[in-house]
Design a protein around this nucleic acid. Sequence first.
RNA 1: UGACCGAUGGUGUAACGGUAGCACUGCAGAUUUUGGUUCUGCCUGUCCAGGUUCGAAUCCUGGUCGGUCAACCA
Length: 570
Amino acid sequence: MTQYGSPEREKTEEERSLNFIEQIITEDIKSGKNDGRVHTRFPPEPNGYLHIGHAKSICLNFGLAVKYNGLYNLRFDDTNPLTEEVEYVDSIMEDVRWLGFDWGDRLYYASDYFEQLYEWAEKLIIKGKAYVCELTAEEINARRGTPTRPGTESPYRNRGTEENLDLLRRMRKGEFREGEKVLRAKIDMSSPNMHMRDPVLYRIIHASHHRTGDRWCIYPTYDWAHGQSDSIERITHSICTLEFEVHRPLYDWFIRELEIFPSRQIEFARLNLSYTIMSKRKLLQLVKEGYVSGWNDPRMPTISGLRRRGYTPESIRYFSDRIGVAKRENVIDLALLEHSVREDLNKKATRVMAVLNPLKLVITNYPEGETEEVDAVINPEMPDPGKRKVPFTREILIEKDDFMEDPPKKFFRLAPGREVRLKYAYIIKCEKAVKNDHGEITELHCTYDPLTRSGMPDANRKVKSTIHWVSEPHAREVEVRLFDRLFLKEDPDDVEKGQDFKSSLNPESLKVTKGYISSGIDGAGALDKFQFERLGYFCVDPESKPDKMVFNRTVTLRDAWAKMAKNPQK
RNA sequence: UGACCGAUGGUGUAACGGUAGCACUGCAGAUUUUGGUUCUGCCUGUCCAGGUUCGAAUCCUGGUCGGUCAACCA
């Protein structure tokens, strides 16, 4: 992981404690289960874009396979033609690949197993473990009982094998309307586990599927497809989220009745992030109702959104590693995700001086019309930091925030009569703040000390701070999109009665502004990463054009001064 | 008011009967031509009550709190 900077000592296997899934796998390997083989899978349903929660699952599933010298599959759980689309299949593959995982030739679709699944359904009927039920969905639900009350058996539960077989075959042929009949497993209507109360295996859907077209009009449910797909692929450890825990008895029941390869389902707690929603349904709503520009809006917690925001695959993998894996509900602090990008970008991002909120500054004793070139460091964290020339002139732009007419005690920047260093250039002294008729400061007049240019002996003089700047005649205007968290509340769903999560939306999650940069960005292409010195990390938006560049703010730098300014009581 | 799962600093996560550690956050300081980075230090924790044991975060019992389950979604 560490490419530059201080060499981090990798912890040895013994030093690093194992999470509960790694413990299970380690024990399985030790006991020779599955011949010591480890094979995992990531099974997305192609009905939406992947988000950071999926990233956790991908890193977990695939990371485990890598760690234990196993294999991992990418499998689309495409059993519901009503909600699934190729657009999603494509985006999912792009995102998984971008995260840094290569599934080789192990790309599968649950729909590839439809025929096998069907054969197994007949097998179950022959064993007397499944039946065609003609109750309506409402009737089935009414008879299912409640978690505290047992259900009642369907009147169709005990029909003969031949009749069941005939009916199922006719269901497949398309002789019935949607909802008219379903195939159900015959288990136990009084089980305390609702999922064991004769779950539906097949439902009739007269819709074409993005892969099987119109070949089928009966589609397997999740329970009927998922475990068997794992088994067909000889998945050893089928890792999923906690809400499927109650499905496990059914998962195991199918394996037992069908006498097929016994994959083992293991559940972990899904990721929750503060100030973020993870529900695909709600994310879709934000997209459809135009609260964001699309699935890849840089404010979205989707992989494609994070990518466009400027996150790197490494930072997301690092994050997944840091958050850990366990079975208890959790809410990860968004600060950890931000820490993860900063950690990575600090090592990689090219430094550039950009002014976003300009205040003109005239160096009155500097020769008019002269331009000199000063050396700027490209990235101080690199073993070979590199240098770049930056033009310096009499009239420059500095950040408005870097000047205060009447500064508080701990403000170290420019103020009347105070000295400051212009990074890579000279030490200047503020002589005068020029105001307009409204009393607003329009420009600053300063003088410079010609002996303090970086590299000269006098440059080592101590000054309280160093600020960034841009030569005004050389300044190039760019568009800058300042993103902030999409939601104001730590838990966006924690809202007043009658309101929904949208009432927690942050109205200031996007501010579009201008920036001025003189050098360092020529030829920068989509998603190239920069640090605007003292401001934050930015990347080139894919919509950016050479003559009209657009930068997205990934995250600000940590800002001790901003924190202090917020808590003036100290 | 059923079944299942869970409970360790502010947030996550370790410790597998023997000194409660790590990361993030927060705070304080050092270094710094980024109030960044880096470095140092500090704050803060085993849900409760019993029991077993020389010894319990860990095992047992009971409670409390939180989550999940009543789609022909996944």
